[in-house]
Design a protein around this nucleic acid. Structure first.
Length: 278
DNA sequence: CGCATATCCTGACTGC
DNA sequence: TGCAGTCAGGATATGC
């Protein structure tokens, strides 16, 4: 479940380690993973290029290359960027970049919801249509109560469901949407259009705050270990979650005696405190 | 268009 | 202990 804070953590780790390095070899695993324009094309466009900058857009990791192209990586649910070194290809390892100085970096993804795409710099990857429609990130300047309000007003869908829409809250996924709604004291099953102006303001602020905190604590590594740092280490935001994954446990808001509940919403689980979230 | 639902995938977990 | 069944969810496709 790599969301914005997890991908940003990876970006920050990789930047100093990879910037300036030249790709000397590209290896692929045996299993198919969504890749544009296919393994041969990806290899051709990557070979010989240097990493000029590590970027990120929403949940997408963007390797800017010296040859005028971007390598765009989405980690899906279980994707990881890992360093294995010069060893045989590992289980679920789909792509390994070998740099001219011997450094390596690998894309690993057991569930294969992730995707790899090479495009011209700044172009919208054909294989990733949603990227063209992504909105502002809650941590960006310009993400305001007015901006969020525009996207929620008149909508009958549950607010939680809309927060998962990358046009509404780019970079937010299931964990951080639950945490933001808790901080804003709004129930996830509220109809988006029913939110009053102070609630929209609280939510816009909470979204930014929770993503910023997630980055500060290097992301959330749940028990399934789906998200890992490049060296295999864990983030630590899981210790600070207030509702996500805490069904049946006490609400973490000071003075609140509520017990966290879980509710199925749009095929996703929403965690919330029925006492302090209205 | 908006909204709900199904789909992909496999490791971890649950219950018998 | 082993095995079948269920769950997890990001993005997208499909149906109404």
């Amino acid at each position: 479940m790599p969301e914005l804070p997890e991908v940003e953590t990876i970006r920050r780790l990789l930047g100093p380690q990879l910037t300036g390095k030249r790709i000397a070899a590209v290896r692929f695993g045996a299993k198919r993973v969504t890749m544009h324009p296919g393994p041969a094309g990806v290899r051709r466009q990557l070979l010989g290029a240097a990493i000029s900058k590590m970027g990120r857009r929403g949940k997408y990791l963007v390797f800017r290359l010296s040859n005028g192209r971007d390598l765009v990586l989405h980690l899906g649910m279980s994707g990881q960027v890992r360093r294995f070194g010069n060893v045989p290809m590992q289980p679920h390892e789909h792509m390994r970049l070998e740099f001219s100085d011997g450094e390596t970096i690998s894309f690993v993804d057991a569930r294969r919801f992730g995707r790899v795409c090479v495009t011209d710099v700044g172009a919208v990857p054909r294989a990733i249509r949603g990227m063209a429609r992504m909105g502002l990130e809650p941590v960006e300047k310009g993400y305001s109560a007015a901006y969020l309000g525009e996207r929620l007003s008149g909508r009958r869908a549950r607010v939680k469901t809309l927060l998962l829409d990358q046009r509404v809250a780019c970079g937010v996924g299931n964990i951080y949407s639950d945490e933001a709604l808790h901080r804003a004291r709004i129930r996830p099953d509220r109809r988006a259009g029913s939110l009053k102006s102070p609630e929209v303001s609280r939510l816009a602020a909470a979204l930014g705050d929770v993503l910023t905190d997630g980055i500060r604590w290097c992301g959330t590594t749940m028990r399934d270990g789906g998200y890992r740092l490049v060296d295999g280490g864990a983030g630590s935001f899981q210790d600070r979650l207030r509702v996500y994954g805490r069904e049946g446990e006490r609400c973490r808001r000071r003075g609140c005696k509520g017990v966290v509940r879980r509710q199925r919403l749009g095929g996703r689980s929403a965690h919330f405190c029925p006492v302090c979230q209205r």
